[in-house]
Each structure stands twice: as C-alpha cells, then as structure tokens.
C-alpha cells in the first residue's frame, strides 16, 4: 500500500512497432495538482487512455488508491473515483447541456428496470433530485443559463467547461484534464485557472493536467512531469522544470513544427 493516489510503474505501450509510452513511473499524491507536459506526440493522452482503461498497457502497472487497475473495465475504474475530459471534446452532442450532466449522474440508475418502466414514485423523486443536482454542476462551471442549449452547439470554450462539469458529476477523487485550455484566449485561460483552482480547493479533488498553455500549467501545478517521445524527460516543481535544459531543448527542437 503506497501513499500515492495514482501511481504507474514501468508503464509501457506499443502500437505495432511504435512505442508510444515507455517505462513511465508517474506518481500523484492526494490533493496535488500535477502537470503533464511535453511536445506533440509525446504520449501524454496515451497515458490518460491507459489510466482510464481505454487502452491496455503492453507492460507495467497502474495503481489507483493502492489497487491495480490494469485490465479493469473503464466504467468500473470511473466508479472507483477517476474521471477525465478529452482533448478532442467528447460530449453527448445532440442533447442538452443539462442532460449531459443528468446522464452522468444517473449512470447507476438506483432503481430496478421494472420500476423504470412503471415510473414509480421513487423514480420520479430520484429524477427531481438529479435534475437539481445537475443544475448545481452547471452552476459550478458557470453554465446554468445554457442548461437547455444543445451541447454540440455551444461555443468551444463552454463545451470544455461542460466536459469538466460532466467529469465532476461522477464525483471523482482524481480528475484528469486533457488540454482544458486548448483553443482558449488569455482571458478565458484566466477564468479556467480560477475554475480549476476552485474545483481543487472546494471539492478537494486531485487533478492531473495535460496542457500546452505554459501559463496555465505553471500557475496551477504543484509538480510537473515532462514527457518526450514516450519517455520521462524531467520531473519536479514548476520552476525546476522550466529551467531544465533537456526540457528547453525538447521544446525548442519541436517549436517550429508545433502550431
């Protein structure tokens, strides 16, 4: 039993001949905000995919709250208290923002199929309560007024916020945010930083953050891991990482190709 909330040991995955992530040891303590950065193609999202159970690692182990989660189904991992957002937003596009949250809150129905068909009093009560809670989550990310808007039609920045709200609705202990600031301007970034800090402090949720906006990562993270070509390049507090020569080189070398 370790004192880490999340820990990977020798995490490795290969697709065909390509090694996307190699021998990664990654640790997150409860209550931290950890940044995961690196040039495009460094394997950051792949790490998230393995942690959430979508892609099985070729080698290595992943421990969440002290128990191994390699081979556990994604929905079971989620129910243990791990949630995430997606780099290329994956909302339930064609339904309302509110319904997006409602679905997530109701992922475990809490009543039987027969009760569902009969729509018993219990079902109706749970429904009403869930609706209320769903509004609270929208409120938290500042989307209450968009409750009835179709999720896919919201502006990009708001979709990212809705994804965060949806992830929070699973009541996670650990939240993985995959480029939450992508496509946002400075002002939006600032309010996102506030939001993430707010979530972290008020809800006591541990956060791992993949982000290209240096401001956002440096501002928020207690600790930063730098990946390059699937391998751990550096790790430490934001200041140490920023002045690390390997990191500077990796980013400069990639700089021109980066958008």
């Amino acid at each position: 039993m370790s004192d880490f909330l999340l820990e990977t040991k020798n995490l490795t995955v290969r697709f065909g001949g390509l090694t996307a992530v190699e021998g990664l040891d990654f640790q997150v303590k409860k209550g931290q905000i950890v940044g995961l950065i690196g040039p495009n193609g460094a394997g950051k999202t792949t790490v998230f995919n393995m942690i959430t159970g979508v892609i099985p690692p070729t080698e290595g182990e992943i421990f969440f709250k002290g128990s191994g989660i390699v081979g556990v189904r994604p929905d079971r991992i989620a129910r243990r208290g791990l949630s995430r957002t997606f780099q290329n937003i994956r909302l339930f596009e064609k339904i309302s923002a509110l319904e997006n949250i409602v679905i997530t809150l109701q992922r475990e129905p809490g009543y039987s199929l027969v009760e569902a068909f009969l729509r018993t009093k219990k079902v109706r009560e749970i429904d009403t309560e869930i609706q209320k809670r769903a509004y609270d989550y929208l409120e938290l990310v500042g989307l209450r007024e968009y409750a009835d808007s179709v999720a896919g039609s919201l502006p990009y920045g708001l979709q990212r916020r809705l994804e965060i709200a949806r992830a929070l609705a699973t009541e996670p202990e650990l939240l993985l945010l995959d480029e939450p600031a992508a496509g946002m301007n400075n002002e939006e970034c600032d309010s996102l930083i506030d939001l993430i800090r707010n979530i972290h402090e008020k809800k006591g949720i541990t956060i791992v953050l993949i982000e290209h906006h240096t401001d956002v990562v440096v501002n928020l993270s207690d600790e930063i891991y730098v990946l390059n070509l699937g391998k751990l390049l550096a790790h430490g507090d934001p200041h140490a990482v920023q002045t690390n020569e390997d990191v500077i080189r990796a980013y400069l070398g990639q700089g021109r190709k980066n958008k």
Binding site: R73, S83, R84, R90, F92, K94, R107, T170
Partner: peptide, 10 residues
C-alpha cells in the same frame, strides 16, 4: 452519442 465517453463516465 459517445460510447467511449459514456463508459469513462461510468
């Protein structure tokens, strides 16, 4: 709507 996200949401 979104099978992968649904599963990751539990």
């Amino acid at each position: 709507e979104q099978e992968i996200a649904a599963e990751i949401m539990g």
